[in-house]
Design a protein around this nucleic acid. Structure first.
Lengths: 340, 340
DNA sequence: TTGAAAGCGCTACCAT
DNA sequence: ATGGTAGCGCTTTCAA
């Protein structure tokens, strides 16, 4: 019953023989718009069903596009990532694409390796969610006719479609909210991960603060996880000058920070401490947290990416095809509305 | 610079021409164990680099196995699912496989559709994480030489590899823990989703209770999410006979239930209420919850699946290849150790 | 409408 | 070690 090592899938030839028609007839039956008589079609379909035949798309697209899209991503378990991959896979699938997920580390070598795989498997397009591939390799991909989309990445790469987030505006708004809440010692919780978007959030927050002549206590978490946030809280409140309002570059960090502040130091949020996150992951809305944060419009981003990949207007100039999305502030309970 | 509609990837032929050798030579250069002189190899590599050539694996495996593995999964954003997909993609990749993620609904039609796609793309194997495909279709897949692995699914399907969880033991242990904590009104929070594993947990918990002559208050959440757990708590504690110890078939449900109990009814956990979950998702360990739960040994499961797919010993009888894994109890703070 | 034949990119086999 | 040839499963001319 189980395969030995013998030939495998049933082929069009077998169907043709069984149906008593030519191989061409079989092929035509399964390509829309081809001319086949009802009679022939019926015979073919019947034989195909009996044999369990399915057109080999890999062979079909030997001459055309493969319909394969590769997603290069790391930290798949992270809520934002999982959500993004979820949207993308669903929508790509709905658009008739097949999605290969390449789960990598985010260092350049891993990403490069993944990108090569993408080339080996003749993906029509690659979407990079994590890490940044080398310029040379991207050029190779591009020159091979592959479409490359970078999400929240550097924009130093020519010829790819870039889709990003307006981190600057959000970061500035975060500072504004903290000040409006009457916070006196404003803090920033960044991460050692230092991915482009994280750095942007950090820089613009700092810049906004310095514009107002504010000094901010900057904390760097060792990662971008809940645990890192928790640890950071321990360090933050052990200092002599702990912050009373902090912007965390990530929700996960914020959630950990809140828990650290509450459970280790008995702080009350937002009375003693205001916290703002970024991403609006599902957990941010949980009763235990009710975190004020900025939402990444993931679905819109995914839609845009898909439209980039299926849209026929590849003639549209590249600059026009990139897009920047606006995070939207989600008001919950971790920030006071007014000074105490 | 960007493609028009013209031919795309550079082929071995082009490389051969540029290197001034035969196409065979190019092919040999890229298949290990083939005999090529250093000189030839060098020329080929050089030409390949210059042209940006990458072997077309789709064409290569036209004759052999495709190295493609499909994952059929739903609810990708759910922490357990995301974690499972994360493990699987990493490990499959390490084993030289390419992973296609098919994100479906869990109804049979969607799963069947996905399974067909699997056939169209000549996947060597399909791993089903959600939903259950029709028997007929699985048979087709099997007879086409595709390997089918079902995780936490029904085992009524012959010929596939089944890997499951020992839900029974865990459910019984859950009851035991609740009783030991001195709970008087034991509750069970199930879900309308009624997937095989959820049903198993439910049934065995109920059976164990009835063995002890215990009546349990059974609550059915409308889904298997945090929100559904939260709603269930509202309903549970509005009753005249609320439970004081409940086993939730899922961590997400448990977390929502805890928050409902605490924030809506001011209950103290574990003093007023004991809660046990299942899955041991990351959030269960967060300070705000510290949920006692059962861990799914996801990594072990993933390892097993991969070994099933790459292992050469396909001759091993099917029954031997299935496996059942033992969830392990994770003690935290949501259950008392002794009666009050 | 139909079948035969060519060709997509590749590797395996066969001579040399 | 090398090049030519056949063939993997498919679609697409091209004739009939």
């Amino acid at each position: 019953m189980r395969r030995n090592n013998s030939p495998l899938f049933v082929s069009a030839k077998a169907v043709a023989e069984r149906a008593g028609v030519s191989r061409s007839a079989v092929s035509r039956t399964f390509t829309d718009g081809a001319s086949v008589s009802e009679e022939t079609r019926r015979k073919v379909i019947e034989a195909a069903e009996a044999l369990g035949y399915h057109v080999n798309h890999l062979a079909r697209q030997l001459r055309e596009r493969s319909n394969i899209v590769c997603l290069i991503v790391s930290d798949l378990t992270t809520p934002v990532r999982a959500a993004m991959v979820d949207h993308l896979t669903r929508k790509l699938q709905a658009a008739g694409k097949i999605t290969v997920v390449l789960n990598t580390e985010s260092d350049e070598a891993s990403v490069n390796h993944a990108l090569k795989l993408t080339l080996h498997y003749r993906a029509d397009a690659t979407v990079v969610l994590s890490g940044t591939p080398s310029i040379a390799l991207v050029k190779t991909a591009l020159s091979n006719g592959q479409q490359v989309v970078l999400i929240n990445r550097d924009d130093r790469l020519e010829g790819c479609d870039i889709v990003g987030l307006d981190n600057a505006t959000a970061a500035r708004e975060a500072l504004f909210l903290l000040r409006r809440a009457g916070c006196r010692r404003v803090g920033l919780l960044t991460s050692a991960a230092r991915t482009p978007s994280l750095v942007e959030r950090e820089q613009h927050f700092l810049a906004a603060a310095s514009t107002e002549g504010l000094s901010v206590v900057t904390l760097e978490a060792e990662a971008t996880s809940y645990g890192a946030g928790l640890q950071s809280a321990k360090r933050a409140f052990a200092r002599s000058d702990p912050p009373d309002g902090v912007f965390c570059v990530t929700d996960l960090l914020a959630l950990g920070f809140m828990d650290g502040a509450r459970h280790e130091f008995g702080l009350c949020i937002p009375k003693d401490l205001c916290v703002i996150g970024f991403d609006n992951i599902e957990q941010a809305s949980w009763e235990a947290y009710r975190l004020t944060t900025f939402e990444q419009p993931l679905e819109k981003i995914a839609n845009h990416v898909v439209s980039l990949l299926v849209g026929t207007d590849l003639s549209v100039p590249q600059a026009m095809r990139s897009a920047v999305f606006e995070p939207v502030a989600i008001w919950r309970r971790s920030v006071r509305h007014h000074p105490i």
